[in-house]
């Protein structure tokens, strides 16, 4: 199994142990080129390969930015644009395939948002102040969010008010780590430890209490395997 070194942020040194057996090897730059050429020549198996490599990632990004509504259609549209662009020869550096796909996906997100804003505005212009679209989250999403908030409350109830303040400063008020450590007289290690303990406790309670995964994961899994 080959792997690609891809310098992302400050990397974890033990990352190799996290690879899973079902994860396929990634093509290197020259293999991206071959894949792109096969797509350009209309090879259906190359398109399937591209889809299997990136559909979950595209789905994840779109779902995170736009929510789970009509996700299948959005993934399909995006994939189609990527393939058509490759076939037209818009991708000039095949070894930058991942960057190219990211750009297409981001443009799609911006386009979906603009469409939503304009259609809502048109609706507002027609019936100003009369009707407001009900765009709240659906009951299932609300239930999941409330369950998770309940678990988090248990985690927070179990820790000291000082530890709560540290986490609140970081996650709620987004104060920089350095400032928090200085003002709360903490070392960087203590700060990291507190965060990782809180996360571990949250995950542990979550696994015990939540019988089902979040809606996002569910909707991702449904079509990721198809």
């Amino acid at each position: 199994m080959t792997s690609v070194r891809n310098d992302v942020g400050d990397a974890e040194s033990n990352s190799q142990s996290m690879s899973t057996p079902e994860t396929p090897s990634v093509p290197d730059g020259s293999q991206w080129r071959v894949l792109v050429e096969r797509i350009q020549s209309g090879d259906n198996s190359a398109m399937e390969e591209l889809y299997s490599l990136f559909s979950r990632g595209i789905r994840f990004y779109l779902c995170r930015q736009l929510g789970p509504q009509e996700l299948d259609d959005k993934v399909h549209d995006t994939f189609l644009i990527v393939v058509q662009a490759i076939q037209r020869g818009d991708l000039r550096e095949p070894e930058r395939l991942m960057g190219f796909i990211r750009t297409v996906v981001r443009r799609q997100v911006a386009a979906f948002i603009d469409n939503a804003v304009h259609s809502r505005r048109e609706q507002m212009d027609l019936e100003t102040g009369v009707s407001i679209a009900d765009n709240r989250q659906n009951p299932e999403q609300n239930a999941i969010i409330e369950q998770q908030a309940g678990i988090m409350k248990e985690v927070l109830d179990d820790i000291s008010s000082r530890d709560r303040e540290i986490l609140t400063r970081f996650y709620l008020h987004e104060q920089p780590q350095e400032q928090i450590c200085q003002e709360m007289n903490l070392s960087e290690t203590q700060f990291r430890l507190l965060k990782s303990r809180a996360k571990a406790r949250f995950g542990e309670l979550g696994r015990k209490k939540l019988n089902r995964k979040s809606l996002n994961k569910l909707s991702m899994r449904n079509t990721a395997g198809s």
């Binding site: 080959t2 792997s3 070194r5 992302v8 990782s196």
Partner: peptide, 15 residues
């Protein structure tokens, strides 16, 4: 299916 891209993203960066 997915791809192995190493190294993975650190916890801090993800946060």
């Amino acid at each position: 299916m997915g791809i192995i891209l190493e190294p993975h993203v650190s916890e801090d960066t993800l946060e």
